[in-house]
Nucleic acid binder design. Structure first.
Length: 381
DNA sequence: TCTGGGGTCCTAGGACCC
DNA sequence: TCTGGGGTCCTAGGACCC
């Protein structure tokens, strides 16, 4: 695909934290983190002022969902275990996650982007790609229009990257955070992209970055300096060839405006590890609830599942999964639990259990009958 | 005071079929 | 009887992303 496309990546700035600040403006400028449970919610005094929990009050096994820039300055960051963060920043304000709030802001944000370009791809709750190849104006003007529309709709800022493809647009939007605009052309790859850390590439995670580092490679430019056969030798045919292409800024993935869900799952980490025998009741109740939640999710969204699976994480953090494919698709909690129980029987339950999860896969929309269910269409003619 | 929850995609081996 | 190849489905695990 010739890269005369123009793709925008729009990324909300510190999204969860910004949503919370819209609710609690008095926290602006404070070190604040999001993590924890409803019991950490602010309490309103009779005089209308609010009292907030502090990170030092946190109990549990969660990680930080987000941290404001002020909190990050204290050395904490999203993904960090909250207990560990509490030692670094005990006085930071603590708020529980409020996904309903983030989802409502997410809708406003995406509708605002859609008003500029209808051709958008969802990437989670706080990011989208938009194909603006045929949108009026130069890239700079489009970026300003996107940011203005988002701010108008949400009162929140975002960062915009515009480039010939998704890979570069995504790298761009991160270059001038927060509230930034970055425009990049293919000929800028050498000067602007090559100096960046290899781990900035979407698709180069901790494992691949470590493997690259062990081979003396830390920047994107250093990947580009190797030939394909060397990369293939060390990273396999598929990943090696991909590394070479992305290091040169090449990416022809289209902007995908709609995709069917592949799976739906629910999982929970227990406050303390549970043993299959000693805590049988507790585990059974959690198991049932997870099955009911997945069933409800399926029914609400109108899907049937033909694959049911479970996930267990033990006290040593080792994780196992088991799944089973059924002859008929289901969405009913009881049938789901039966299938999940069959999976559970295939796991040796000696170690204590830290996490339990239930997953539905092989989804099909309700009403889109399978061949088995509508033989008349295949047999009658 | 280690390590959340919800996803997608890929790989690899074995079964099974032609 | 010493040696096939596909192709597809199923299962388990793992990397990665937000």
């Amino acid at each position: 695909m010739p890269d005369d496309r123009r793709i925008a990546h729009i990324d909300m700035d510190a999204f969860f934290a910004s949503c919370e600040l819209s609710q609690y403006p008095e926290l602006r400028g404070e070190a604040m983190v999001v993590a924890g449970r409803r019991s950490d919610a602010p309490r309103t005094n009779p005089d209308g002022t609010r009292e907030f929990s502090r990170l030092r009050d946190y109990v549990g096994r969660g990680v930080l969902t987000t941290a404001t820039y002020e909190a990050r300055a204290l050395g904490v960051h999203s993904g960090m275990p909250a207990m560990k963060a509490a030692r670094l920043a005990p006085d930071a304000i603590l708020l529980p996650v409020n996904f309903d709030l983030y989802r409502s802001y997410s809708r406003l944000f995406k509708d605002a982007v859609r008003s500029i370009s209808s051709n958008i791809e969802d990437v989670g709750i706080d990011e989208v790609y938009a194909d603006v190849s045929h949108t009026d104006g130069d890239s700079e003007a489009i970026a300003r229009k996107l940011k203005a529309a988002v701010f108008e709709a949400t009162n929140l800022t975002c960062s915009v990257g515009i480039a010939p493809n998704k890979l570069l647009a995504k790298l761009c939007s991160d270059m001038q955070k927060p509230d930034g605009i970055t425009i990049l052309k293919l000929e800028d790859v050498r000067s602007k992209i090559w100096p960046m850390a290899a781990s900035k590439i979407n698709g180069v995670g901790p494992k691949a970055a470590a493997r690259l580092a062990s081979l003396g490679i830390t920047t994107i430019g250093e990947i580009a300096s190797r030939d394909e056969s060397w990369l293939v030798e060390h990273f396999g045919r598929s990943y090696g060839a991909w590394l070479r292409r992305v290091s040169h800024g090449l990416d022809d993935r289209p902007v995908v405006t709609y995709s069917e869900p592949v799976s739906m799952s629910r999982e929970t980490t227990f406050e303390r590890d549970l043993h299959a025998v000693r805590h049988r009741q507790e585990l059974g109740a959690a198991f049932t609830r997870l099955c009911e939640q997945v069933a409800l999710d399926l029914q609400r969204k109108g899907y049937l599942a033909r694959k049911i699976g479970i996930k267990l994480r033990f006290n040593d953090f080792k994780t196992v999964t088991r799944d089973v494919t059924l002859s008929e698709p289901i969405a009913d909690a009881k049938a789901l639990r039966r299938a999940a129980t069959e999976c559970l029987k295939r796991v040796e339950l000696v170690k204590s259990i830290r996490l339990l999860g239930v997953k539905a896969g092989n989804l099909q929309p309700v009403g889109e009958a399978s061949d088995k269910e509508s033989p008349q269409f295949t047999l009658d003619f």
